[in-house]
Simulated assay, not measured.
Amino acid sequence: MSVNTRQRIRTDIRHLRRAITASQQTDYAFQLAEQCQPLPELTRAKHVALYLATDGELDTQPLIDELWQRGINTYLPVIHPFSKGQLLFLRYHANTLLVANQYRILEPELDQRMICPVRQLDIIFTPLVAFDEQGQRLGMGGGYYDRTLAPWQFSSKGPQAIGLAHNCQQVSTLPNESWDIPLSTIVTPKQVWRW
């Protein structure tokens, strides 16, 4: 399928996502945290990366609060200042200073002392625009998460990628490219998908 098809799906799903009301977003955020609580991956995790929601994405703050209560170290992605298209993950606390990146997404202010190497993360909760019934993930198109996850795709070591999405972000089939990294687990407010 063409790039135009991928872009059309992104446009359509982002429109659906943005149409979710503020009260629904709040409800879904708490439902997501409840769905994630019993995940076996999370019960053993010590270092977990998440993201801060933007553009109608599923709000992760209740999940972050739950992780903080459990004493799990949490990290947020930061666009690497020197390696184009790469992400760093920095420790995130309630008092972490956040700044807007080039996409107007909040991220921790760069501090080398707060960086966690990707190999030391147990879970990377990944944002996505759409997912299909086979676990394919369609992101925003920058490839940041695909590049971050690629070295660990067939490894038993390193982080487990778990997608987070609204239920309305599911489609039957996504066009995929060779660089797309499928996910074995995606969590929505209503259920946990496993492949």
Rank of each mutant, 00 (worst) to 15 (best):
G142F: 10
L63H: 13
Y75L: 07
M114D: 15
A161T: 07
Y145V: 03
H93C: 11
T74E: 04
F125D: 06
S83P: 00
L63S: 12
S155T: 14
A100P: 08
K46D: 12
I105N: 01
A130W: 00
L39K: 06
G71K: 04
V48R: 00
D55K: 07
R113L: 09
Q136H: 14
K84F: 04
A130Q: 08
L87H: 00
A161G: 15
P108T: 07
I105S: 03
T54V: 14
L106D: 08
L58V: 04
S83A: 13
D111L: 06
E41H: 10
I162S: 04
A49Y: 02
I115Q: 04
A165G: 05
E133I: 08
L32F: 15
K46V: 04
L52P: 10
L106A: 08
A100G: 05
T96A: 02
K157Q: 15
A100Y: 10
S83D: 09
T54Y: 08
Q86L: 09
R44V: 15
V78E: 00
G158D: 08
E34Y: 13
V48I: 06
S83L: 12
Q35N: 14
Q153Y: 10
Q134R: 08
E109H: 09
L128K: 04
D59Y: 03
L106F: 08
L138M: 10
N73S: 12
L98D: 02
G142I: 11
F125K: 05
L63Q: 13
G85A: 10
Y144H: 12
L67C: 13
I72V: 15
G163V: 03
Q86D: 14
H93Y: 14
W152I: 12
Y92N: 02
H47Q: 05
A130Y: 03
D132W: 03
R119A: 14
R113S: 13
M114H: 13
L121Q: 10
Q136L: 11
L52G: 02
V48L: 05
C36Q: 06
Q102M: 08
P159R: 01
F82M: 07
C36N: 06
D65N: 15
P62G: 10
P117R: 05
V78D: 01
W68F: 13
Q153W: 11
D132G: 07
N73Q: 12
Y92P: 02
N101A: 04
G71V: 00
P159I: 09
E66C: 11
S155K: 14
I124C: 02
N101S: 04
E133R: 08
L110F: 10
I72K: 06
H80Q: 06
E34M: 13
F125E: 05
N73D: 12
